[in-house]
Structure formats: structure tokens, C-alpha cells
Simulated assay, not measured.
Amino acid sequence: MISDGFHYNKLPTNSLLFNGLNQQIMAANSILIISHQRPDGDSCGSSLALFNYLKTSGKNVAIFMADQPPSYFSFLPGLEVITGDRMLLNRQWDLVIVLDSSDWAHTQVKPSNLLRKMTINIDHHFSNNRFGDINCVDDLASSTCEIIYKFFTEIKLALNYQLATCLLCGILSDTGGFYNSATTIEAIKISARLIDQGAKMYKINNQVGRNRTINGLRLWGEVLARLKIDADLKIAYTYVREEEYKKYLINDEELDGLINFLNALTDVSISALFRINRNQTVVSLRTTKDNINVAQIAQLYGGGGHQKAAGFTLPYTLDEDSDLLSFLKKDNNRCML
């Protein structure tokens, strides 16, 4: 059974898809949930909400993520079940459900080595390549948590505080607290229902948004001090080096939010943050312009995301300043701007 995805305004199609998805879940005994590397609020929230449902349905279920979730998600019920133990990938699974990932590459899992009977792909990214046997992909949804909420609603699952907290965390994370372009009337209505079920919006915002340390802010200061703007392309860009994390004794997660902060700049079309590591360069892109699609740039380099927020990883190290600007001015990048 293969589905090419859906948009939620096609209600009969969604009803059939959600119920078909639930039939596959009920038919499986062992289920592995996988989400992308560098977990965020949506990947953690959707994975834990689905885990909760599967566990209470009597399934043998586990969650694999290549990286451990940031510590500021510790308030999420059940966060400790998320593991990066690759021994899980050597087991035989009846069903694998991949959440919030546009392709296999973002999970750091090789599908050819994964023993499973079926793969279900649930995602909201514009760049999703429909890699599942069943593809539940809605690029109009604010988040994967929004899709999981609609799935639970369709199968008439009663929500409790734990489920509501996980789902609201994902929606708030991917909408930037109802600040960015992913914010829709539907997302706000769903969030209101989740708050009605006991989720505490202010607590989630406090945990996720107020997580800076003094050393983390000092690093922000260094990164912002070398911010440059190219007037020709109207691009603001800066970088952070791997050794700077060690200098300030902080984790990579301390820089989460910096690229969104740069996106508030006026007279700039695109903001770019380069994380320069020993063997690779991680690039994050943001825009507020309706006529620019940064996901298309990311796809050129095996990445993905949304029209206004995307990223990718280069398998080599870029040098500071001159290399970064030269990369941004490549012909195939310029044509997207």
C-alpha cells in the first residue's frame, strides 16, 4: 500500500489514510519509531505522543534518534525512553514509523540495513521524498505533532495531559511560539484544545525558550560580532567553530534559536549560520520573503526543510569569511535567490 501524501482539506482521503494507518499499527506487534538527528520539539513531541499511544495499545515499541534530545526537553513525559542505541536497528521489526524527517539521510539510519516489514512516513516538510510504503505527508501542517493530533482525533483517541503536553510542545516549537510563517488558524485552534486538555503553554515556552546560560550567551556575542551582510545578495551570515563549544564548555544546543534571531534583521532576504566542524559544515538558512524558498537551496546539497526554514550538511569544512561568501555566491545558489 503506497500513498503519495495528502492535504488535510481533503477530509475523506484523510479519513481513509488515517484509518488505514491505524490498521497497520494494530496489525503489528513490534514497532520502531525513528526521527531525525539533532532532535527538536516536534520530533520529540510527536515521537513520545505516538510512543504513548502504541505502548497503551500493548505494542513492543522503542524510539531511536541518532542524537540525544536537548536537556531543556526534560519536562516531556517519557523523554528517557528515547535512545541512540544502534542495536535496536539490528532487530526485526514488524513496522517502522519515521517521524518529522524528509528522507532517510536525516535520521542517520541506512534503510538497507534495517530489518522491517513496512515503513510508515509521517511528516510535514515540503522537501519530503515519500520514502515510505505509506506516506502521510502534509506540507500545509504546522508540524508533525499537528498531523499526529489529527490522527488521534480521527481514531477517536481520548487525549490526556501527557499526550497534550507532547503535542503542544511540537506545535510551539515549529511555529516559534506562534511567531513564524508556520503559524496557521488550524495550529492555534488545535493548541487551544490541547491547553484545554491540560497542557501548560507558559511552562513549555519557559522550558524551551528560557534555556540560555551565561557561557552560551557569551558565545552568541562572539558569533554576532562577526556577522556580515552581503549587500548584493541581501544575505546576513556568520559562523561558529567546533572548538568554541569546548572553549565555553557548552553543547551545540546552546546555539539553538540564534538563526531565528538573525531572521529578525531588516533589509535582509536570507540569514545563514555556518557551524564549522572538523569534517563537515552544517548550514542553517532562514528567510521571511514569500518569493524565496530556502528548502530548494538545501535540497541541492541533500538537505531539506520548509520554504522559509531549511538546512543541510556539507561533507567538508569551509574556511571562515571568504569561503562562506564564495559558497553563498555560487551560481546554483544565486539562481534560487
Rank of each mutant, 00 (worst) to 15 (best):
L249F: 07
A28R: 11
L328C: 01
S271K: 03
M118W: 04
A182C: 13
T184H: 10
I97R: 14
V223K: 09
L273P: 10
S271M: 07
Q37Y: 03
L11R: 11
I270E: 06
L140N: 15
L114Q: 15
A66W: 00
E186I: 02
L167Y: 03
S3I: 12
S71C: 03
A192R: 01
D133A: 05
M336C: 12
N277T: 02
I31V: 15
N52Y: 12
I190K: 11
T288K: 15
K200V: 04
A158S: 11
L300Q: 10
I297Y: 10
Q37C: 07
L48S: 06
Y239F: 13
D138S: 08
F261H: 15
Y248K: 08
N260Y: 02
K203M: 05
W93Y: 11
R275C: 07
F274Q: 11
N180A: 06
L88Y: 09
T153D: 10
E222G: 06
S181M: 07
T183A: 03
G304H: 12
G221Y: 12
D323T: 09
S15W: 02
H306T: 00
C136R: 05
K203T: 05
R278E: 01
P70R: 10
K329F: 00
D40A: 04
Q92M: 09
V268C: 09
L233P: 00
L21V: 12
T313I: 11
G304E: 12
E154D: 12
E254P: 01
A141G: 04
N9E: 14
I122A: 10
L233N: 05
I148G: 03
D85W: 03
Y202E: 15
E320H: 10
N90Q: 14
K200Q: 11
F152R: 13
N205K: 15
Q68P: 03
E186R: 06
W104G: 12
N128P: 02
P77K: 09
K247A: 08
A66P: 02
R278Y: 01
K308N: 07
K59W: 04
T13I: 05
I34Q: 14
G170S: 08
T175P: 07
D230W: 06
K156G: 00
S47G: 08
N19G: 01
L324Y: 08
Y161L: 12
A105C: 06
I155V: 14
L224P: 04
F152K: 14
I134N: 05
S284R: 09
A62W: 00
D290R: 14
G170A: 03
L76P: 05
V208Y: 13
V81G: 12
K55M: 01
Y316G: 03
L54E: 11
L233Q: 06
D67V: 06
L32E: 04
I292K: 15
D331L: 07
Y239R: 14
D230Q: 11
V240W: 03
L16K: 13
L224G: 05
N129W: 01
I214Y: 14
D40M: 02
N293M: 06
V81H: 10
N333G: 01
N129V: 13
R278I: 01
Y161W: 09
R86T: 04
Q23K: 15
L314D: 00
F131T: 10
L16Y: 02
L219Q: 11
